[in-house]
Each structure stands twice: as C-alpha cells, then as structure tokens.
C-alpha cells in the first residue's frame, strides 16, 4: 500500500508542465529563445511601423530625405560660416552630413525604444508576447530610415566627388555595417533601460527629450574631435562611447580623419555591458509593469 502511494506521488511530482507562472523569475533568464520564436511578429511590426507612418502623407518616405539635408544646411551655416570650425580636411558638407546620418539613427533608436512600455501599455496589457520584440522592431524599422538617409549621403558624396575630383571608395566601407550595429546596440541598450525606468516614474520621459540633444554636442557631430586637442575638457568626449563610433564612421566612409581601433573596442565593451544590463532590467520590469505603468 505504502509502495503504491509512493509511486503515485512520484508520478505526480514527475508531471511535465510546459510553463510555470511564478512571482519572480531568475534574474538572468532572458528568454531569448522565445524572442526568436516570435520572429515573424518582429518582421510584421517593422512592416507596420513603416507602412503606418506614411499613410495619408503626401511625401511619404521622402520626409527622411528632407530632415538630414536641412539639418546639414543649418550646421553649415552655424558651425562653418559663423563659428568657423575646421573639419579635419574633410569637405564640410560631407563632414556634417555623415555625422548627422549616423547620429539620427542612434537618436531614433534611443527615443523609439525608450517609450516601449508607456506607448504599448494598451497591447501589453491584453496579450503576452516577448516584450523585447517591440524595441527590437523599433531598431530594425529605423534601419530602413537609415538606409534611405545613407543613400542621400551617398548621392551627395558622388556630387561633391565630381566637383572636387576626389572620390573615396575603399575596404574601410566594410566597417560601416559593424558601426551601424554598434549604434543600434547602444540605442537599444540605453533605450530599454530608460523604458524600464519610465514605467513607474515618468520623469525619465522628460529627461530623454533634451538629454539626447545635449548628448549630441558631447559627440563629435558638429565638430571633429581633433579641435579639442589639449583642451582640459577633452576627456568628456573621449570617454563618450559614441565618439569612437562616429569618428570611425567618418573614417570608414570618407577615408580621412582620425580613427583608433582601441577606442572602438572600448565602445564595444561599453555597448555589450549596457545591452546585458538593459536586458536584465527589461526582463524584470516586463513581467509586472502593467501594475505600475
């Protein structure tokens, strides 16, 4: 009798459950496999973002062309004509425009992912899917925007190349995809950390708006890093992990300027750390954010 009971108990405890919902999950259980299972959803979100953004606009994706062109014109006026900044021997138009293009991608990723929870509270509250799909889709749909802007940059390069009889195209171009991925990682990592914090305290939403703007001036977008040589505050830019990426992007694209592989490694380590901690915090918040959002 006792034996039978024991056996029964064993069967019950051995029972296989597909899923166990509990108050707390393991801190480092990031469920990335699940994200992969939802890859179709990821692609559909990207399509949705892109399609929905231009419904009922006349210019559609052309808006992506207008923004960097006008920003470049303003930068040329303010930083070149008024402030007289030297651009490392690079054509000023290309210098500004390349900086703006890569910066736009970062800032779009960061601001886009940073309101993941607040903007999607409605859908998150009703159905479960790995929440990480949303920030990932933001990063991916911004790539489309980046490619369009990069194409404009390329056209401007060709045009200026004809004018100046100088056109650079080399193996360093192969570095560009890596740099874009790094920017995506940086935007995503910081974005998901901020999005996790905003669920309870909205203060961060206000912060992110101008922090991105200020951060741009701490990154060599409107001026080259070289003009700070010997200045006491140059460290501010040197420790900015975005600096090496922007500099390397210009170097890779235009073949001129400064570029230090070791600095890029520093950025890569910074990005990986941010991404890891971001994913851990995000994972912790996503499970119960509906109660506080």
């Amino acid at each position: 009798m006792n034996l039978v009971e024991n056996k029964m108990e064993k069967i019950i405890t051995d029972e296989h459950w597909d899923e166990i919902i509990e108050p707390r999950s393991k801190l480092f259980d990031l469920r990335l496999k699940e994200v992969w299972r939802y890859r179709d959803l990821l692609i559909l979100f990207v399509k949705r973002d892109f399609a929905a953004q231009y419904k009922q606009t006349i210019l559609g994706p052309l808006w992506h062309l207008i923004q960097p062109v006008f920003t470049t014109i303003v930068f040329l006026f303010v930083f070149k004509s008024i402030a007289g900044i030297q651009t490392d021997g690079i054509n000023a138009t290309l210098f500004f425009m390349s900086g703006i293009t890569i910066w736009n991608y970062f800032s779009a990723c960061l601001t886009g992912t940073s309101n993941t929870f607040v903007a999607n509270a409605g859908i998150f509250g009703k159905v479960y899917f790995p929440r990480l799909v949303i920030p990932l889709s933001t990063v991916l749909s911004n790539i489309i925007k980046f490619v369009i802007q990069f194409f404009v940059l390329f056209l401007v390069m060709v045009w200026i190349g004809f004018k100046e009889q100088y056109f650079y195209f080399g193996a360093t171009w192969l570095l560009i995809p890596l740099l874009v991925v790094m920017m995506a990682g940086m935007g995503l990592g910081l974005g998901i950390i901020i999005s996790s914090l905003t669920t309870k305290y909205r203060d961060f939403t206000v912060l992110i708006g101008f922090a991105v703007q200020l951060l741009m001036y701490l990154t060599p977008i409107a001026y080259p890093l070289s003009i700070l040589k010997g200045k006491s505050y140059a460290w501010l830019l040197q420790y900015n992990p975005l600096t090496p990426i922007v500099e390397a992007f210009r170097y890779a694209l235009l073949g001129k300027g400064s570029f230090e592989p070791l600095h890029l490694l520093y950025s890569a380590i910074f990005i990986l750390t941010t991404l890891f901690f971001g994913a851990v915090i995000f994972n912790k918040v996503e499970r119960s954010f509906m109660d506080t959002v």
Binding site: E22, Y128, R287
Partner: peptide, 8 residues
C-alpha cells in the same frame, strides 16, 4: 495572471 500580462 493566466495570460502572463502581469505576475502574481
């Protein structure tokens, strides 16, 4: 809780 939109 059952549909995992929040945790117990």
């Amino acid at each position: 809780i059952l549909s995992k939109t929040t945790t117990p």
